[in-house]
Design a binder for these strands. Structure first.
Lengths: 231, 231
DNA sequence: ACCAAATAAATTGTCGACATTTTAATTTAT
DNA sequence: ATAAATTAAAATGTCGACAATTTATTTGGT
């Protein structure tokens, strides 16, 4: 799990708490965010709370309507597929740029991460860990390795929490943990080789496979052959 | 130029005004945003102003530091190139999805837009119009045509204003107006044919060419062969 | 009993004032 | 005269209260 800066201001702290609660589903998807209720429960002024809500909106976790208020986004299969459609080219480019710009330290970090993933999955139930945070951590650090601030902003600020939210609350039934870890290894290999084109190709394939796997599962669920935990 | 919803709230109005002023350079890039000064000049409370500033931050036009305040982003060649690196795969995917999902009405609209661009450039100085708003309008409507909400959010909310800002304030010396309009025609053609793969390829090439053109101009400028209007 | 209009309650938007932190100016010491 | 320390000014963060809007309830009519 990625944890960055400490909260310096009240709004910061409230944002981080609410963000975590929404991502993990402790604040239900689709539910209303009541300012009076929350400001009372969290013991902060509505000003600080509204600042935090504004940031939740900025990272696409809530939607706001003027004079009506904020509401946690609702999850849907359609949106999840859309996210993968966006990630495929974006992270593909991230991998390409990482092949050009990544530092040795960042490579070391990624190699260690992959080793850790393999170990976790071999020994006991690493599936949950991997699917909740581990997988995304890999993608996160690849994006960081691109050293492209705009790309980092889009993926790590605007999309990351949303991706996390789906990871926590949506289908946890994927059988792709092992293949995914292998594909990570291939991507990183191309990056280490400095082969941007190959890295982009491999990353796009990796994400496309994840999407198609989900699309297949959705189809199965819709045909009533699996219990529906897709919200 | 794309103009959407009317401002329903004070913060909305202030946001739109500030956004426009920043994009056009009437509020200088890199300058500080003083809450007391602005709230006094615009005759609104700091609460409404701060709400607006928060949204400016969300669309990457200002940066904020806790206890220090907001500052208009500064423009740089590096950032501009970064934006093109992000746009290339993102809008490529947008074109691919548009080929699958665009409606006839949207196609008609785009064809009319291209016709308008060709006319403007033939008759008189359409270059300025095209480079300030026309070109981006085309890209904007292609993205809309993808019917992918996540993609639309990223490109039309998080990146659009930033792109506009560079269009207004950065190099207006491109000689690529005519080629660009032709390339637009090709992209739209592939979309109309429903050839997603081709549309993606053409869009990526179109944006890559723009980036390389800029990179070339930057090199020339750095060699002192052109007057520097690159901030 | 059901629907529309009017009223009441609750929620969001906006404001001015105070608290805390940062920045500028002044003082003091070397 | 310069630099560090102290003090003063200004800016941001936070708060509670009021205004405007939305939502829920009640009233009245058919």
């Amino acid at each position: 799990m990625i944890e960055n800066n400490i909260a310096t201001t009240i709004a910061d702290r409230i944002f981080e708490n609410l963000c975590s609660d929404i991502v993990k589903g402790e604040i239900t998807a689709g539910s209303k965010i009541s300012e009076p209720e929350l400001s009372l429960r969290l013991k902060v002024s509505r000003a600080s709370l509204r600042e935090a809500i504004g940031r939740l909106e900025a990272c696409n976790l809530v939607t706001r309507k003027a004079n009506v208020g904020a509401r946690v986004i609702s999850l849907s299969e359609k949106k999840l597929i859309e996210i993968y459609h966006v990630r495929e080219p974006l992270e593909g480019m991230a991998a390409r740029l990482a092949a050009e710009n990544i530092t040795q330290d960042e490579i070391d970090n990624l190699q260690q991460l992959i080793k850790h993933h393999a170990y976790e999955v071999e020994n006991g139930d690493g599936h949950t860990y991997f699917q909740h945070t581990g997988d995304l951590d890999f993608h996160y650090y690849i994006v960081q390795g691109s050293h492209n601030e705009q790309l980092i902003s889009l993926l790590c600020n605007d999309l990351y929490h949303l991706m996390q939210m789906y990871r926590y609350q949506f289908g946890r039934i994927s059988q792709r943990t092992l293949p995914a870890i292998n594909e990570h290894q291939y991507v990183l290999g191309a990056i280490i080789d400095g082969d941007g084109e190959m890295a982009e190709l491999l990353m796009r394939n990796h994400i496309r496979k994840s999407r198609r796997n989900i699309e297949k599962m959705i189809t199965v669920v819709e045909c009533g052959q699996l219990s529906d935990n897709l919200g």
